Simulated scan of single mutants.
Amino acid sequence: MASDDGFSDFFYTAPDGLRLHTRIYGEANTSGWPVVCLPGLTRNACDFHELALYLSQDAERPRKVIAFDYRGRGRSDYDPDISHYNVGVEAGDVLAGLSVLGIEAAAFIGTSRGGLIIHVLGALRPAVLKAIVLNDIGPVIEAEGLAYIKIYLDRSPTPKSFDEAVGAQRRVHGGDFPALADADWARMVAAICRETEDGWVPDFDAALVDTLAGADFSKPLPDLWPQFEALAAVPLLAIRGGNSKLLSAVTLEDMQKRHANMEAITVEGQGHAPFLETGNLPEQIAAFLDRAESKSFNSKA
């Protein structure tokens, strides 16, 4: 049963026994493809709250929305073996959750790491993907962007109050996100942090940062062009932050050349990764899903 917040909490068991969590919005909705939301490296299901409410409460086509907490994030169990914090294991966890929920296929929205997991799902079980929204991620990851993520995770402070936590996020990311308002920053902190006796801490297993140790960001990272091109038959919307350090404008242009069923949006005034609840992004995402499902997608093929 949905809570007053518009969602219900659902827990399931991963293949290796960890207890994992999802949020389900519009549980009784059957009017369109369900939507699966996959967050970034250290983020969780809260990132999609406003977008999920919008999609699940749409007047014409309310959709069921499932937002995942990967292992080690949000309300999911932490993994004692940090080698399991990888996109392959996490893709398997997503498939396990969908199996328990009885969902054979869905539209997928992936932010950053979530988009990488979508590439893996395309290799493991391509039939599960009905439509794709990639939020600031593509087959080429700029090493500069990943290095930047590692730096600010390593230096993440422990603010004593909510206001201090908001200020800390603005100091780190404000230059890339001049379009955000005070309410946006507050909503971000409420989504990614939890209050403890020591202050406001990131809501993920601190060992996740260790998975980036030893990476050489001075060299180009392996690309995923073969995996991306395998998604060519799936309608795709790619969203890029105009100030993104992770997804370049050149890569976005190359993606459009290689994918006949792709649309693209650049969100000015935002970096990695755009807040999907801001501006008219919810309307644009909903319209894309409707076009894809009604087979009126404007294919370039």
Rank of each mutant, 00 (worst) to 15 (best):
N280S: 12
P15A: 06
I285G: 01
R187Y: 12
L153S: 03
V89S: 13
V120H: 04
A287F: 05
L221D: 03
F297C: 01
D198Y: 01
L281W: 04
E277H: 15
V87N: 14
R61T: 14
R171T: 12
L55D: 04
G40E: 10
L20A: 07
G271R: 05
L18P: 02
D198P: 00
K300Q: 10
R240G: 11
G279S: 05
Y70I: 07
F177K: 00
D205I: 03
I109K: 03
D69Q: 04
D163C: 09
A143H: 04
K219M: 11
V201T: 09
A123E: 15
L146P: 03
G88V: 13
A123T: 14
A213F: 04
D47V: 01
P80D: 06
A2V: 12
V87Q: 06
R155S: 12
E50I: 10
L281I: 04
K130S: 14
H49Q: 04
R155A: 13
L55N: 02
R240C: 08
N280H: 11
A213H: 03
F11I: 05
A213N: 14
G40V: 09
V209T: 15
S3P: 00
S83Y: 01
D163T: 13
E229K: 11
E90M: 09
H49P: 07
I103C: 07
P226H: 11
F228N: 11
Y12W: 13
D290Q: 13
G97Q: 04
A179H: 02
R258P: 09
G26T: 05
F288N: 06
Y85H: 12
K130F: 01
E263S: 11
L116A: 02
A165E: 06
M255S: 09
V234W: 03
V100Y: 00
I103D: 06
H49T: 01
D205H: 03
A59I: 15
N261K: 15
V140N: 02
I82F: 00
D47S: 04
K160I: 02
R73P: 07
A14C: 10
N243H: 15
S3Q: 05
Y54H: 13
V166W: 01
L53Y: 07
S161E: 03
D198A: 14
G17P: 07
A106E: 08
E268L: 10
A292D: 03
C46A: 15
F68C: 09
V133Y: 00
Y70L: 06
D184M: 08
L55W: 01
G279R: 06
G138I: 07
A52Y: 06
G214N: 05
R43F: 00
L153D: 00
A91C: 08
Y78A: 10
R43I: 00
P39V: 01
P62W: 05
R19A: 05
R171Q: 13
D210L: 15
E144T: 15
E229T: 14
G279N: 02
D203R: 02
A232C: 08
K295E: 15
L208M: 14
Y70A: 04
R19Y: 00
A238M: 12
G102K: 05
A123R: 14
F48W: 05
R125H: 13
